[in-house]
């Protein structure tokens, strides 16, 4: 908490601030300030100290420590509490264990590295230490029927796309149902998992992974890391992940509350506007066989409507779509 207050004080000062002023702002002793500054320096913050003038923040590292993350939170529920981990098997797995033990709605799990990051159906999701932003949230949508929960995939994808569009000015679009793409290249993956009874949702785990920086060194060799789309290259500058996380959570909270209060229709309309799938010829590897045709609509439940060559309509609830 002290680190957060000191960091916040340094940021607000936008220049030199005395140790005494920092101590007063944080409600701690000057000695504690000195220790906090040393800790921040060890964590990669560049802080200048000058006699009689005090401290000045020169630069912040691109870190996902809880005090940095919480500094950028603009949300009421999401991100409270925060678990920031250096390493975890999978943030979804960790969040699920927390949820089972009663973690509240909004609990956030962020990890610098996932050793067993997961995608759908046991597929792996490769995360790059220091280069991707991977996090999971515990959601408890009270009063929502399990049968409406799959709409959350759209809510989450739209929230990410909105944040990328509004905060970073890039042309993020949605590939049905859960990918955020730029120039047709996947930038963000979403995995939603639910535990429910027939008419009651216990909890939903929403996992989001975004490629932010191009990884360096060994990761580049032979793997996808050299080819994958990364956010930095669309923005044209290195993106601070804690800032991005704050922006996405704010956007997500807004979309989520709108969805709870007003239902799916408004979300659906915006999803359709940003869809990179609609209007295109698609092939769907549906579980009960391949489907080919033109993606013509996203229906009131979020399913993709595909019109086949003989004019028949198929509603797609699951399966991989290639356009």
């Amino acid at each position: 908490m002290t680190l957060r207050k000191v960091l916040s004080g340094l940021l607000k000062a936008n220049g030199y601030v005395s140790g005494g002023a920092l101590a007063k702002g944080a409600g701690v002793s000057r000695n504690t300030i000195w220790k906090a500054v040393e800790q921040l320096r060890a964590d990669g913050y560049q802080i200048e100290a000058a006699p009689r003038r005090g401290y000045k923040l020169i630069s912040s590292p691109d870190c996902l420590r809880d005090y940095e993350v919480s500094l950028h939170l603009k949300t009421v529920d999401l991100g409270k509490p925060i678990h920031c981990l250096d390493r975890v098997d999978s943030t979804n797995q960790f969040a699920r264990q927390e949820a089972r033990q009663g973690a509240p709605h909004g609990t956030l799990v962020v990890a610098e590295e996932q050793t067993a990051g997961r995608g759908r159906l046991g597929r792996t999701w490769t995360s790059w230490p220091g280069a991707s932003l991977c996090f999971s949230l515990v959601l408890r949508p009270n009063g929502v029927a399990p049968t409406d929960a799959p709409q959350l995939t759209h809510v989450a994808a739209l929230a990410v796309a909105r944040a990328l569009r509004n905060d970073l000015g890039i042309d993020a679009r949605l590939k049905w149902p859960n990918d955020v793409v730029v120039d047709g290249r996947k930038l963000c993956g979403i995995l939603v998992e639910m535990s429910c009874e027939l008419d009651l949702i216990h909890y939903v785990i929403l996992g989001i992974g975004i490629n932010v920086h191009r990884p360096s060194g060994d990761l580049l060799e032979g793997g996808l890391a050299g080819k994958a789309a990364v956010l930095d290259e669309f923005v044209g500058a290195p993106v601070k992940r804690a800032l991005l996380l704050g922006a996405i959570l704010a956007s997500l909270e807004q979309c989520y509350i709108d969805w709870l209060n007003k239902g799916f229709e408004e979300i659906r309309r915006e999803v359709k506007l940003l869809s990179s799938t609609l209007g295109r010829h698609v092939e769907v590897a549906a579980p009960d066989g391949p489907v080919a045709g033109v993606a013509v609509d996203i229906d009131s439940r979020g399913a993709l409507v595909v019109e086949g060559p003989t004019g028949e309509f198929r509603k797609i609830y699951a399966g991989d779509v290639t356009a």
């Binding site: 929960a149 859960n178 979403i190 995995l191 639910m194 429910c196 399913a303 699951a318």
Partner: peptide, 15 residues
Amino acid sequence: CIVEAMKLMNEIEAE
């Protein structure tokens, strides 16, 4: 089992 819709994976548990 799992029931999936729109990439939401619903792990069905025995009650």
